[in-house]
Design a protein around this nucleic acid. Structure first.
Lengths: 136, 136
DNA sequence: CGGGATCCTTCACGATACTG
DNA sequence: CAGTATCGTGAAGGATCCCG
């Protein structure tokens, strides 16, 4: 996980201020895409790229998500600069979302992970069933 | 997220039993590697592959992890078949862990994710700081 | 040495209701 | 339409102590 933290960052002399995993980039990334709806949202937006989707269209594309979670997920993504938000000042307002270049670049490693998952999760499921039986 | 669930699995007639995201492989994978110590553990074991590491050696390789979490993480990985556990019946016992082939195969997409994180997380951090300032 | 058992806190997420 | 506000819950994870 990037056993980083060697360079720079002179810490207060008497303290070992660099506790445990300070700000490991991989940890931070996993905290984001590990969240329940984030990677799903990125995927749906990626399929539309470079086009946009409106809030309700996104909701339809992500079965099971609540308004609250879609709203929160999108806010995170916008803050991170992975998604761009565009508001048309009509009444009622129309809000459009699209992946930024940064967001789109995440799709590559993410889809690699999806491929691995689709290929190997069945085997993992079998392993778990075997383990469950053996424990009897 | 593999909008799977189309084939097979005839659900109880009167019910729409196939609620939302039933068993999406990507969701399942993210639930595993998104857990706080899993990917770190895989990485440390991968660096040693095809060699083994003992419980305490692993602990040293993963600063900040508690005995409880290392134990729990390893049990998950063993159940999933990503890690193999070998006990030497000495006193006190010596337990060795290594990645299986399956576990090793996960390292490829995982390291792609790490590269992306190391490359782009600084930019995401900057985006967040900008957003924080703007909100003032 | 390599764990297991317990207790406790935090927080992601779901359900529901309200609004410009 | 596109959110925000509030409440409640389960599960992840940390701290601590004990065991063969």
């Amino acid at each position: 996980m990037t056993t980083s933290m060697p360079a720079g960052r002179d810490q207060p002399p008497g303290e070992r201020g660099d506790l445990l995993d300070p700000r490991c980039p991989t940890r931070q990334l996993l905290d984001r895409i590990g969240t329940k709806w984030t990677s799903m949202t990125v995927k749906v937006l990626a399929e539309e790229a470079p086009g946009e989707l409106r809030f309700t269209e996104l909701r339809r594309g992500i079965p099971g998500i609540s308004q609250k979670m879609l709203s929160a997920t999108l806010q995170s993504l916008v803050r991170d600069g992975l998604v761009a938000r565009r508001v048309e000042p009509t009444v009622p307002p129309a809000v459009h979302y699209r992946l930024t270049e940064l967001g789109l670049s995440l799709e590559t490693p993410l889809s690699a992970l999806r491929v691995w998952a689709e290929t190997h999760m069945p085997e993992i499921d079998r392993n778990n069933q075997l383990a469950a039986e053996t424990s009897n």
